[in-house]
């Protein structure tokens, strides 16, 4: 971790206003933001440690625990909501055996909800990594996930 972190941080010595891009890059490199990495960011930028965490914990994008290999994001946008996103989320939770915000024991999937992925016309939808699965029914959700696992 140390080496990857130093590579990311190298260009940012003393650059306090670059905190958010730095956090994004560190998360991209490490998968999440461990406490040690945030302390290192504080040392590099000259920001107080508390400030680094204050900013990181404000934004929804940042994670402080290890994540699964894949991320399933269930859209809770308005269009999805009126077209049954709640049931999609429940079915996803049931299929994976975890609830929103959790990661499966085998570190395969992390389940999250997102305010809107902007595919409202194809509601309800979920996003598995960068792929959008659209116009879903609860049945399709379990099929998609089980299908991926057996493939």
């Amino acid at each position: 971790m140390e080496e990857r972190l130093q590579t990311v941080l190298a260009p940012y010595k003393g650059k306090r206003d670059m905190l958010i891009p730095i956090l994004q890059q560190v998360q991209a490199a490490l998968g999440y933001l461990p406490d040690d990495a945030m302390a290192e960011i504080a040392r590099t930028t000259g920001l107080p440690e508390s400030r680094v965490y204050a900013v990181a914990s404000f934004y929804a994008q940042f994670r402080f625990t290890p994540r699964g290999k894949h991320t399933i994001m269930v859209c809770r946008g308005t269009a999805c909501h009126v077209r049954g996103a709640e049931k999609i989320l429940e079915e996803t939770e049931r299929t994976l055996g975890i609830v929103e915000g959790e990661t499966t024991k085998d570190l395969e999937y992390t389940l999250e909800t997102v305010a809107c992925i902007g595919c409202c016309a194809l509601a309800p939808c979920i996003m598995i990594d960068e792929d959008v699965e659209a116009k879903l029914t609860p049945k399709m959700v379990s099929e998609i996930i089980t299908g991926r696992n057996t493939a």
Partner: peptide, 14 residues
């Protein structure tokens, strides 16, 4: 500093 946001906001450390 402030930690998290909304109703979950607290004052805390890293």
């Amino acid at each position: 500093d402030y930690v998290r946001r909304g109703v979950h906001t607290t004052v805390g450390t890293l």
